[in-house]
């Protein structure tokens, strides 16, 4: 009886809500995951060349790091609003805003990872006749991977949370459900969407952690590895910034 009435009595937890609005919840979750995945992938694709550019010297590092920091300081509501004249009410607007945010964490971590590669490893590779491209792909990138993955995890988790703000333009995944439920004080919908958001963030984090373990099997046998690779395992430079949605 309680289950049938929970929609009427507006309970926080309502099984009937999950049953009757299952499709709506699935659609919103799919949109949420889609926006997050596309944003993080584009962010990674943009951050990587930026980090390589910043590595070429202070002349490039200053502007790149400065610009991404300024972008990061802009509040999400303002960021999405500033992009409105360019994109209109579209998912592209939300994705662009999220990409710009992810750049700060990703560029910093990729740069820190690459700079932590021991010079001996580079020298050894060069001595073996590796060109710059092969050196980057086969030596530096694998050694930088723990730091890169740490950045990717942070960026993904905050992107999942920030996606909710996209409901401002109707493209916020689970955020849309929260926005729709507010005028009618629909408790079950707000709580369910909020919990799903957090679960998505946790699941994404664990998934990426698993991927990192798969990609860097050598970090698990740290006892057998010398001091140099262990150094790159130190992860990101500082857990300084938090961008919550």
């Amino acid at each position: 009886m309680a289950e049938q009435n929970c929609l009427v009595t507006n309970d926080w937890i309502c099984g009937e809500y999950l049953r009757s609005r299952g499709q709506e919840l699935t659609d919103a979750t799919v949109q949420h995951i889609g926006i997050t995945v596309v944003s993080v992938l584009i962010g990674l694709a943009v951050a990587f060349p930026l980090a390589l550019l910043a590595r070429r010297g202070r002349r490039f590092a200053g502007p790149v790091l400065g610009l991404t920091t300024v972008l990061y300081t802009v509040p999400s509501l303002a960021m999405f609003s500033l992009l409105l004249p360019l994109f209109g009410l579209s998912a592209a607007l939300v994705v662009t805003g999220l990409v710009l945010y992810s750049l700060t964490i990703l560029v910093r971590n990729i740069l820190a990872g690459l700079e932590a590669v021991p010079e001996e490893a580079r020298d050894a590779a060069r001595g073996m006749g590796y060109g710059p491209g092969r050196l980057l792909w086969e030596v530096e990138l694998p050694l930088a991977l723990p730091a890169v993955m740490a950045g990717l995890r942070m960026a993904t988790v905050s992107t999942v949370a920030l996606t909710t703000v996209g409901s401002l333009v109707g493209k916020g995944g689970l955020g849309n459900l929260i926005e729709d439920a507010l005028p009618s004080f629909f408790k079950a919908q707000v709580l369910t969407a909020a919990v799903l958001c957090v679960l998505l963030a946790v699941a994404a984090d664990l998934l990426l952690l698993g991927l990192q373990r798969l990609l860097t099997p050598w970090t698990r046998i740290s006892g057998a590895v010398g001091a140099a690779p262990a150094k790159t395992d130190a992860g990101p430079p500082a857990p300084a910034t938090v961008k919550a949605g």
Binding site: L162, K187, V198
Partner: peptide, 14 residues
């Protein structure tokens, strides 16, 4: 980082 601000504010409003 994982908890959306918007969700927390919305929960407070209920």
């Amino acid at each position: 980082r994982a908890v959306p601000v918007f969700a927390v504010l919305a929960l407070f409003m209920l």
